[in-house]
Design a protein around this nucleic acid. Structure first.
Length: 501
RNA sequence: CGAGGCGUAGCUCAGCUUGGUAGAGCGCGUGCUUUGGGAGCACGAAGUCGCAGGUUCAAAUCCUGUCGCCUCGACCA
């Protein structure tokens, strides 16, 4: 049946399932531009809902939005050694400002118009922003700066995947400046908490919050916090990161402030971001072989009303559907008006059922002559396919209750997936076996001696990486010392290993 | 960059071995009949066969070159 829908079942080929789903749910398609995607209206609606929710949380915690240039002078990247090493390999460069005829009907960059210094299309904006901050910060009174920007960035990825890793992607990047290490630390953790709340309370995606190993941290950071979640094929996916940048960028861009005591100090920094990868995360967390499954709080369409009518019933059924839609739209759930779509297209009812399942409508209301005669409607849930018959004057109440229930059960289901595929492993044979097959292997919580060499060897032999060192141990016993699963050397605590997207 | 594969209608693909009038399904348009899990019939529109050379009376098909894309690795939000 799902073959008919054009979606490869998850069990058959998870990667194909994902690609099929993105296309069939009408979220995005590949662009003619290598590695870039076209985000279609339905996919962008998802992003807008995510963006609005996050933007509200950022602003509620004192952040403001601004916008910096897309192009960054190449030399800016040379100022922070680790940063340049991290990004140099994937930068797109602008070298000319004009085209000219090549004499054969084509166009070439005008050699006369070569830039003295090339620009890099931003892969991330620390450098250009800290260049501005140098001008904005003189005194402790100028701090903190709590700026966020919603932007697109470009990284010339070698292997793109829709939403998960594209050459151009949309994100938000927060860049804050602080007077002290502690204040920056507090900020980094505050944002991590916002990311966690967003993932869990909006997206129904439970996460493990932790700190990255030296090898996995952001290029140029002092340390990096992350939230990691699990996909249905038992891999890890990094949903968001928050970096304590120490004084690295302040030193690179010479940003100092004068303290209340009159001393000159370098500024402390954080940066943090989530991207359109969240859409990929969402898909991988909840969707099924019938299409997108969307948590109500970020579903572009929460209720799809399908009027079912022959020609002579059409008028009264459409009128009733519109009336019901208005009643729903004028009620709110989770603080916002309900998002309702009446599908009056001339497709058959069966087609529409499948279509709205593909596109992830949380609830479907079927409304036909039989229902109108009985003063009722049929409500179907996307997650369980469960159908119920409800009196028309009860529909709004039932819809609100079902959305609550759906929001909760998606989170619960994802939590069960994560917890039941998180295991503790204490010897190398079991560790290798856990990551043996195709697909994920879940989260393996194991001891590690803390060295980069061991981390690299484990990666080589199993393709698993250290996802994070949990801030709060998943189990209190995880924080107890032990012996490294590979080397047997002393380990301070258990860390989370997984194969990652 | 390594390994595989693919470029023919909007999409998925057949045709190529053995050169000779450009095909199918889906989708699209029109009309009629339909409508509670991807409706039926009829008619119709739709192509620089990725691009450039070459061989040939003749190239989607053979040869050379080239560009691009996809999947899997190495890099990564």
């Amino acid at each position: 049946m799902s073959k008919d829908l054009g979606i490869t079942p998850r069990g058959e080929n998870y990667a194909e399932w994902y690609n099929d789903l993105v296309k069939r749910a009408d979220l995005a398609e590949n662009s003619v531009v290598r590695g870039c995607m076209v985000i279609k209206p339905h996919g962008f609606a998802l992003w807008e809902l995510m963006r609005d929710a996050l933007d509200g949380m950022f602003k509620a915690s004192g952040h403001v939005n601004a916008c910096f240039p897309l192009l960054i002078p190449k030399s800016f990247f040379e100022r922070e050694a680790e940063h340049v090493e991290g990004f140099a390999k994937e930068c797109a460069i602008v070298t000319h400002h004009r085209l000219t005829a090549d004499g054969q009907g084509g166009l070439i960059p005008d050699p006369e118009a070569m830039l003295e210094e090339p620009y890099v299309i931003r892969p991330t904006s620390e450098t250009i922003i800290w260049h501005s901050y140098k001008n904005w910060i003189q005194s402790y009174r100028d701090l903190p700066i709590l700026i966020n920007q919603w932007a697109n960035v470009m990284r010339w990825e070698l292997r793109p995947r829709l939403f998960l890793r594209t050459a151009e992607f949309f994100w938000q990047e927060g860049h804050t400046a602080h007077a002290t290490y502690e204040e920056a630390e507090e900020e980094a953790l505050l944002i991590l908490g916002i990311y966690r709340r967003f993932c869990e309370e909006w997206m129904c995606v439970p996460v493990v919050a932790g700190i990255k190993s030296e090898g996995e941290k952001f290029a140029g950071a002092d340390h990096t916090y992350t939230i990691e979640t699990m996909t249905q094929d038992l891999r890890a996916i990094q949903a968001g990161t928050s970096h304590h940048l120490g004084q690295n960028f302040a030193k690179a861009f010479d940003v100092k402030y004068q303290s209340a005591e009159g001393k000159e100090e370098f500024v402390w920094a954080t940066s943090w971001g989530v991207s359109t990868r969240l859409i990929g995360t969402l898909i991988m967390a909840h969707s099924d072989d019938k299409g997108l499954v969307c948590p109500p709080r970020i579903a572009p369409v929460q209720v799809a009303i399908i009027p079912i009518a022959r020609a002579d019933d059409r008028e009264r059924v459409f009128a009733a559907a519109d009336q019901l839609a208005e009643a729903l739209r004028s009620s709110s759930w989770s603080g916002l008006p309900l998002r309702v779509k009446v599908d009056k297209s001339d497709k058959s009812p069966g087609f529409k059922f499948n279509e709205w399942e593909l596109k992830g409508s949380c609830l479907r209301i079927e409304l036909g002559p039989r229902d109108l005669d009985a003063n009722q409607a049929v409500i179907a849930r996307r997650d369980s396919s469960e159908k119920s018959t409800v009196a028309l004057d009860q529909v709004v109440a039932q819809v609100l209750a079902s959305l609550d229930s759906l929001q909760n059960s998606l989170f619960d289901r994802a939590t069960v997936l994560l917890e039941s595929n998180t295991k503790r492993v204490d010897n190398w044979e079991d560790f290798k076996a856990a990551f043996g097959g195709e697909g994920g292997g879940g989260f393996v919580v194991a001891h590690w001696d803390g060295t980069a060499e061991t981390e690299a060897r484990i990666n080589e032999e199993t393709r698993a990486t250290i996802r994070c060192i949990p801030i709060v141990p998943l189990d209190p016993a995880d924080a107890e010392p032990g012996q490294c699963v590979l080397t047997g050397r002393p380990s301070k605590q258990r860390v989370v290993f997984a194969k990652a997207y």
